[in-house]
């Protein structure tokens, strides 16, 4: 297996409080890697470290190495802005830009990096919406507000928006926690399609979801990586006692 991301000795803090301790992990290319663990275990912080969104929070800092194709994204002459274009992110709550139309939401990233050609933008917008499996539902309402859609549609709009800037990796931070079961299964299907082209990391508190979609699973507890392996192995034959406890529902 080929690693798209290699994390070495990653530590993260909020102020003086350390929330991640010495994380080492490899994320396989064109696979789905799920991060599970009880709330407060640092799983969200971990994935926000992968595209340097962690440091957006005041007083938050991180140390260590995160190699994406051999480039350390924490290298001092790397601009986090470029990293975030290569590594897209979908958040817990759908967050389309409220004052923009559906179409403008999808191409917002491109427009703001200087692409003005309307035709190009229209083409990309259509392609991205198709990839996000939303095109058929919205193709007649492209000028409607993004927030007029249902929660599940909004989340797929956010996925389309992330796809439009052509990232290599997509991070999902509990993307379905605010959605109903039908919308959730649509997004899960979508992730399975997307992994053909993208490397996917998903944080989830829903263990069934991790079992359904992911190829690899990492279990985090108290800011430490407890166990990492193929999803089947983690769910069927966990090596660590605490992993087993979590999976059978003894805590969290």
């Amino acid at each position: 297996m080929q690693n798209k991301i290699t994390v070495e000795n990653l530590n993260a803090w909020f102020g003086a409080k350390q929330v991640l301790h010495n994380i080492d992990i490899g994320i396989a290319k064109n696979m789905i890697t799920a991060i599970i663990g009880p709330s407060g275990c640092g799983k969200s912080t971990f994935i926000r470290c992968l595209n340097r969104m962690h440091e957006v929070v005041p007083k938050a800092k991180a140390s260590g190495k995160v190699l994406v194709d051999d480039t350390d994204i924490y290298d001092s002459d790397i601009d986090p802005v470029d990293i975030r274009r290569r590594i897209g992110m979908v958040f817990q709550k759908p967050n389309p830009f409220p004052t923009m139309s559906i179409r403008d939401n999808v191409v917002a990233g491109l427009k703001l990096s200087g692409i003005k050609n309307k035709k190009t933008l229209d083409t990309i917008s259509e392609e991205s919406l198709k990839k996000a499996a939303l095109w058929d539902e919205v193709k007649n309402d492209l000028n409607k507000s993004g927030v007029s859609l249902s929660g599940g549609q909004q989340q797929r709009l956010c996925i389309a928006r992330a796809l439009a800037v052509e990232p290599e990796i997509i991070l999902f931070d509990e993307p379905c926690s605010a959605l109903d079961p039908i919308s959730t299964s649509k997004i899960e299907d979508l992730m399975l399609e997307l992994k053909e082209k993208y490397t996917i990391v998903i944080v989830t508190h829903n263990m069934q979801q991790a079992a359904r979609v992911s190829d690899y699973t990492a279990f985090f507890l108290y800011g430490k990586l407890i166990e990492f392996g193929e999803t089947d192995q983690i769910f069927k034959k966990p090596k660590e006692k605490s992993t087993e406890d979590y999976i059978v529902g003894r805590f969290g």
Partner: peptide, 22 residues
């Protein structure tokens, strides 16, 4: 909402453009 700013930053839009346009 902070989530709107984060959405923009996560798309690789620099902070100043995020502030000015988003």
């Amino acid at each position: 909402p902070g989530s709107i700013k984060e959405a923009s930053l996560a798309l690789g839009i620099p902070k100043w453009k995020t502030t000015l346009y988003i």
